[in-house]
């Protein structure tokens, strides 16, 4: 079995920032555009995220994710632009197709929302080891069992992929065709699901025993292999982010 994580190991100040601050940043990037519904604000949020991703030297890694998101969003734009019930103002016509302003604006809002969220999350996911994130939450008082569960969730997809490749090896080793045309591979894929799920369940049980004897449930005060990350300016950043959220709220209430 192997494990793959989206985390990219680079040297950058973004990597140095502690996970909690990144979580607060996500809250900021989600909340502010909702509280202040203006295109400019949304653009600024996406912009900040992209700049940070670039500083973290992981911009290239975001391409597959963004491409997928765009694919979905383009369909949203088309459907909303063409068919939203409130559509009135014609924007332009292409043969029989009419694009309306209301739908397009609405779709654009959704698109920006999604982009702000995705890009903010990407900062966390690409520049933070899952274990590091969980560890800092556990240090803040979260129960280690829940922490372990979260790490496991991070690992589910890689583990499933590993299990699929293990079972595929077992199957082709004994004569089942799994290579070649799309059809062959598709046919081989279906019978995999049962064993993958069963295997995962059995693993869970054996793993639970391994955890037990390694003192996982012991009441002793835990220690940590890695020192807690303390980024020099994290307090300042956190304060600024929280201030921005509060500011947005105040603006909203006053106006």
């Amino acid at each position: 079995m192997k494990s793959i994580s989206l985390y990219v190991n680079r040297n950058s100040f973004v990597h140095d920032v502690d996970p909690i601050t990144k979580l607060i940043y996500i809250a900021f990037a989600i909340l502010v555009p909702i509280i202040v519904p203006s295109f400019t604000i949304s653009f600024i949020c996406v912009g900040i995220s992209l700049v940070l991703l670039a500083f973290a030297k992981v911009l290239r890694k975001t391409v597959p994710v963004f491409s997928f998101v765009f694919l979905v969003l383009i369909t949203v734009v088309i459907i909303q632009g063409l068919f939203k019930p409130e559509n009135e103002t014609v924007l332009f016509q292409l043969g029989p197709i009419t694009m309306y302003q209301e739908g397009l604006l609405f779709a654009l809002t959704i698109t920006l929302r999604v982009l702000t969220i995705v890009s903010a999350f990407m900062i966390l996911v690409l520049t933070t080891k899952p274990s590091e994130l969980v560890e800092s939450l556990v240090r803040k008082g979260m129960s280690p069992s829940i922490g372990y569960m979260i790490v496991s969730v991070f690992q589910i997809i890689p583990e499933m992929m590993a299990a699929v490749s293990t079972i595929t090896d077992a199957q082709r080793a004994r004569g089942m065709e799994t290579e070649g045309s799309f059809f062959v591979r598709f046919k081989a894929f279906l019978p995999l699901m049962g064993p993958v799920v069963l295997g995962a369940l059995i693993n869970t049980k054996e793993r639970a025993m391994a955890l037990e004897v390694r003192g996982f449930n012991s009441q002793v005060q835990k220690t940590y292999l890695y020192e807690e990350k303390t980024y020099a300016y994290s307090r300042l950043i956190r304060a600024l982010l929280l201030l921005a959220i509060a500011g947005a709220l105040v603006w909203r209430i006053l106006s």
Partner: peptide
């Protein structure tokens, strides 16, 4: 392919859980 080859070579894996 590995599947075709399996008519000639059999392998018992080191870790039975993998097989």
């Amino acid at each position: 392919t590995a599947a075709e080859l399996s008519r000639t070579i059999g392998l018992v894996f080191q870790n039975p859980n993998d097989q």
